[in-house]
């Protein structure tokens, strides 16, 4: 309890944060668990299509997009009511996606199909399909919207897509089983995590060349089990939090020196994560233990675990 008090007072300072929510997709429950950031409790459970994984909100947060992988569709939901407004044609087995800064085009990784599908969320039409490597998964788009990235888990590449022509302009090898990609440093760097390789590769966006690699070492855990998946950056982009899968830890990485500063013990097989609005709290989805760990970002400590559905996978903030 003593930990909760400073936390709550910190939250009350941030005002509207009290109403903010973290939305978590439960891959094997076909539901979303909605966590109230004020109370750190699940306040709603919303049914979805089959095997929900990727989740993201529209810019104004009036709609939420959900990859319902086994329903072969992207669902569009009204977050107020939890009602499915309509489905988007997504291509087969959509796993993960990213919304272009234009708030209109969704870039979707079709895991079973070796394709990236681009969907116009307004016309609800597929506007392009781009052949990529086997088992596309990680998706990112540069802040200026000019580059989209798909990582392919079995081909072990980051595929660089020109969003104007919707064609590949580079394919760069990374270590085995790339899972997640994010642009950082104003878009000048691309980070790609490799689950089986156990690394994050940092690329220079301008030249698409490797400029660094992050390796992890968790005490008492064999390197084979240290498997980076999702990661997120703090507001100043100086620190990254990296989910390390079955090692059950989140790494805290100095984004400038690429050195790991800390490891935080969380739930079992940690996948993805989302921040609270002021980025003071971080919520990680722990697939095997079926819960979400809440991390105090300043203290780099786990402060609570919250039971959600079976196999929580994706996480998104609704401010």
């Amino acid at each position: 309890m003593h930990r909760l008090i400073p936390l709550l007072s910190a939250l009350s300072l941030s005002g509207p944060a009290l109403a903010a929510e973290i939305w978590v997709t439960n891959e094997k429950d076909d539901t979303i668990s909605v966590i109230d950031i004020g109370t750190l409790e699940v306040v709603r459970t919303i049914p979805t299509g089959e095997r929900p994984r990727g989740i993201t909100f529209s810019k104004d947060h009036s709609r939420v997009y959900i990859c319902a992988s086994d329903s072969d569709t992207v669902q569009v939901m009204d977050p107020e009511t939890g009602e499915i407004l309509h489905d988007l044609p997504s291509g087969e087995d959509p796993e993960q996606f990213v919304l272009h800064p234009n708030d209109r085009h969704l870039y979707i990784a079709n895991e079973d199909d070796a394709v990236t599908t681009v969907v116009d969320t307004e016309t609800r039409k597929v506007i392009a399909q781009i052949n990529v490597g086997i088992e596309p998964e990680g998706m990112a788009v540069s802040p200026d919207g000019k580059i989209a990235i798909t990582t392919s888990e079995t081909t072990n590449m980051a595929h660089w897509i020109d969003t104007e022509t919707r064609e590949l302009f580079a394919n760069t090898l990374v270590d085995a089983r790339p899972r997640h990609a994010e642009f950082t440093a104003g878009g000048s760097e691309l980070w790609v995590s490799s689950e089986i390789g156990g690394t994050i590769t940092v690329f220079d966006t301008a030249t698409q060349t490797e400029k660094g690699k992050i390796e992890f070492e968790v005490k008492g855990v064999h390197p084979d089990r240290v498997q980076p998946v999702g990661f997120e950056f703090t507001t100043d982009e100086k620190t990254a939090f990296v989910a390390l899968g079955p090692s059950n830890h989140v790494a805290v990485v100095n984004a400038e020196t690429l050195e790991v500063e800390d490891y935080i013990l969380v739930g079992r097989r940690v996948w993805h994560m989302a921040f609270s609005p002021d980025k003071s709290l971080l919520f990680t989805t722990n697939g095997v233990s079926g819960d979400v760990t809440v991390i105090d970002v300043a203290k780099r400590e786990a402060i609570k675990s919250i039971k959600v559905g079976r196999f929580p996978w994706g996480a998104a903030l609704r401010p």
Partner: peptide
């Protein structure tokens, strides 16, 4: 799809 793909490769 193949058409797109080959065109894509030519540019890479």
């Amino acid at each position: 799809r193949l058409g797109l793909f080959i065109a894509g490769l030519a540019l890479t």
